[in-house]
Amino acid sequence: MNAAEPARCMRLTVDAEPARLADIRRFVDEVGTVAALRSERLFDLKVAVSEACANAVEHSGGNHAPLHICAWFHSDRLIFEISDSGDFRLPGAERRGQAGTRGLGLPLMAALMDELRIQKTPGGGTSVSLCVRLT
């Protein structure tokens, strides 16, 4: 592969609302098929992307702000970037009050993905980056 060749990308923009999670999974299916992911890795990726999006939905405060999902194809890995305009909240004290069944999303993403990165974006939003190695 030519090092100067830019990575290919597939994009999806949806309203941040729970009803769109199924559409997001179909998008991950498409990307996974293009990347020829094994079925169990595709399942892991669907869960991880879904968790990142669910977190964004939860913190969008019901304003249905757009959620941008971008899948980057590199030679040896597939990277999903999920960007929103709200704050990603780590599972902390406020969530423990809900009897410990919330806040599973982050541990699941960490367990299922090869790399996980969460960054603040300049506009006050959050970007979650999920990486699956293809080799």
Binding site: V47, S50, E51, A54, G105, L108
Partner: peptide
């Protein structure tokens, strides 16, 4: 065919 932490939370609550 698919389960995420929304479903897992429901199962965990029942187990508890």
């Amino acid at each position: 065919t698919y389960l995420d932490s929304g479903g897992i939370s429901a199962i965990l609550a029942a187990v508890r």
